[in-house]
Simulated assay, not measured.
Amino acid sequence: MATRRSLIRRIAAPAAVVTAALVLTACGGSDSSSAPSGHSGHGMGSMSPAGPSGSASATKGGHNAQDVTFAQEMIPHHRQAVTMAGLAPSRAASQDVKDLAARIEKAQAPEIATMSGWLKAWGAKVPDDSGSGMESMPGMDHSGSSMPGMMSDGDMKKLQKLSGDAFDKAFLQMMIGHHEGAIAMARTEQAKGAYGPAQTMAKSIVTSQSAEITEMKKMLGER
């Protein structure tokens, strides 16, 4: 019996060692395979709340002081351009000038409404609308010193009194300067702004008004 028990122990011992090794291998494989998965899951878990939170934060606070300044300054800037364009139908001699003025008014009037909407949504002040009629032109001079390209009170009064070829030349010269100022303001927004739609509008202003400057310079060169 003793010999039989000894034989059984000799056979069982290696089997136990093999079984233990298999168990340890399985456990080790499980740990090694689950560790990256667990780490990855934790990483995604920690990133997931941050993602929506970041998006919500960006949506809620997705503008900065430059965006507000851009809208508050570009609104009166556009208003003056629209006022100038409004003079062309009754004063310009050239149909090309009349057509250009119509395009300027068509492009910039909706942008004024859009920027006003941004400011209201941000709880920021919308610049007072002094009106776009000729009688309100003198009141526009208060913005001329702070924004590039804005016409002075004297410039606007002069343009109002002109007609024919003299109006066309003055209009084109003044609007070139006005556009150059708008482009400078738009480039500042592109460089320093944070609000996507405002930067998109700024890019559009740079592109469209640069093309119009080229067009106006050609018109002046033909005279």
Results as ranks from 00 to 15, higher is better:
163 S>M: 10
121 A>D: 15
183 I>N: 00
139 G>M: 07
160 Q>E: 14
72 Q>K: 09
118 W>E: 02
7 L>G: 09
93 A>Q: 12
99 D>F: 09
90 S>A: 15
212 E>W: 08
166 A>M: 04
21 A>V: 13
75 I>R: 00
51 G>R: 14
172 L>V: 08
118 W>G: 01
216 M>H: 07
66 Q>V: 14
212 E>R: 05
127 P>R: 02
103 R>N: 13
76 P>V: 03
56 A>K: 14
47 M>E: 11
164 G>E: 11
91 R>H: 08
103 R>F: 08
206 V>A: 00
164 G>V: 10
58 A>Q: 13
137 M>Q: 02
175 M>D: 07
196 G>C: 04
7 L>D: 12
217 K>E: 14
53 S>V: 11
150 M>D: 04
45 G>T: 12
114 T>Y: 02
93 A>D: 14
220 L>A: 04
122 W>E: 05
38 G>K: 10
186 A>F: 02
126 V>M: 03
44 M>I: 15
13 A>P: 03
83 T>K: 00
16 A>V: 10
43 G>K: 05
138 P>C: 07
185 M>I: 02
170 A>V: 07
57 S>W: 13
77 H>K: 04
15 A>F: 07
137 M>V: 08
23 V>R: 09
4 R>Y: 10
54 G>K: 02
140 M>W: 02
195 Y>M: 03
80 Q>F: 01
67 D>R: 02
60 K>M: 15
153 D>A: 13
57 S>P: 02
10 R>I: 12
129 D>Y: 06
82 V>H: 01
96 D>E: 14
222 E>T: 11
217 K>D: 10
89 P>M: 08
77 H>P: 00
113 A>I: 10
62 G>F: 05
130 S>Q: 14
95 Q>G: 13
176 I>A: 03
36 P>S: 07
156 M>L: 08
20 A>N: 08
58 A>V: 09
203 K>D: 14
24 L>F: 10
56 A>M: 14
116 S>E: 08
111 E>S: 06
206 V>I: 13
119 L>K: 02
49 P>V: 13
96 D>V: 03
117 G>P: 03
36 P>G: 06
1 M>T: 12
126 V>I: 08
182 A>T: 01
187 R>H: 10
12 A>F: 08
165 D>K: 13
214 T>L: 11
122 W>A: 05
33 S>W: 15
93 A>I: 05
157 K>D: 06
200 T>V: 11
217 K>F: 07
69 T>A: 09
61 G>N: 14
84 M>W: 01
142 H>C: 04
147 M>W: 01
59 T>E: 13
42 H>A: 15
56 A>E: 15
50 A>W: 09
158 K>Y: 01
108 Q>N: 07
41 G>E: 14
47 M>R: 12
42 H>M: 15
155 D>A: 01
102 A>K: 12
110 P>T: 04
117 G>Q: 09
109 A>C: 03
141 D>P: 04
130 S>K: 11
141 D>L: 00
71 A>P: 02
26 A>K: 07
211 A>I: 11
88 A>D: 03
80 Q>Y: 00
105 E>N: 11
113 A>D: 15
159 L>K: 02
172 L>I: 13
83 T>Q: 01
35 A>N: 13
127 P>F: 04
177 G>P: 06
109 A>H: 06
45 G>S: 14
196 G>K: 13
193 G>F: 03
209 Q>H: 09
80 Q>D: 03
131 G>A: 05
215 E>L: 07
19 T>N: 06
198 A>D: 05
